[in-house]
């Protein structure tokens, strides 16, 4: 393909010493768009001949435009950037199909639309097969695992703690609610570590009985 790269050199040599970036950005409206596309067309013609600076300028110039096209179809910034990159890759792969005698805009937009459609199809496929997990989604299938904790649960637990015999109540408060270590709890209560363990064990057993009575299950 590149055996004779200069045989198709265009007659377009307008931008030799123009200041294209500033010129591009200062233009506005229809005339500005036409002028911008003319710049792009000339950059591409030069890029086809191997001018890397013109090619870099072109790709950098079209990127925000491509991003705006992609943003019309995708909300996720990752999807938008993916689409922009795929358009740039396609432009690179088929840059020899651009004819500088024709406007650059429709050529670029046609490629961009193609990649947007591909992206939407990919998104449609993945949406059909995958479900995004949000925080509020279930973690386990069993209904008991997904009961949300409510204020009444806390009240029920505090009442249950109050119902416990004093030794067990102190053990549960220190070890579970205040999250003290066994040593700290032993020092604070004057009970031995073994006695605290036994009291905690019995307290949990009592809880099981109490809540089993309420819920019908242990």
């Amino acid at each position: 393909m590149s055996s004779n790269p200069h045989s198709y050199d265009p007659d377009l040599t307008l931008v030799a010493d123009a200041a294209p970036n500033s010129a591009t950005h200062s233009r506005s409206g229809e005339g500005g768009r036409a002028a911008r596309e003319l710049d792009w067309s000339i950059y591409m013609a030069r890029a086809q001949g191997g001018d890397r600076d013109a090619y870099r300028r072109l790709l950098k110039d079209v990127t925000p435009y491509l991003r705006s096209i992609a943003a019309r179809h995708f909300q996720n910034s990752g999807d938008i950037e993916d689409t922009v990159q795929e358009v740039l890759l396609t432009v690179h792969a088929i840059r020899h199909t651009y004819d500088p005698a024709r406007p650059f805009g429709p050529w670029l937009v046609a490629i961009a639309n193609r990649r947007v459609v591909d992206g939407l199809r990919r998104q449609g496929r993945s949406r059909a097969r995958e479900v995004a997990l949000d925080i509020e989604h279930e973690t386990f299938a069993a209904p008991q695992a997904n009961l949300a904790e409510t204020a009444s649960d806390g009240r029920v637990l505090r009442e249950a703690v109050d119902e416990l015999p004093p030794g067990q109540r102190d053990a549960i408060r220190m070890l579970k609610l205040q999250e003290m270590s066994l040593k700290e709890a032993a020092a604070a209560s004057g009970m031995s570590v073994a006695a605290l363990k036994v009291a905690t064990h019995r307290a949990l057993k009592n809880f099981r009985k109490m809540f089993g009575r309420q819920g019908g299950k242990t």
């Binding site: 393909m1 790269p5 045989s7 198709y8 020899h96 651009y98 004819d99």
Partner: peptide
């Protein structure tokens, strides 16, 4: 990676 290309 931009090499000169021959236009179609």
């Amino acid at each position: 990676g931009a090499k000169p290309v021959r236009r179609l």
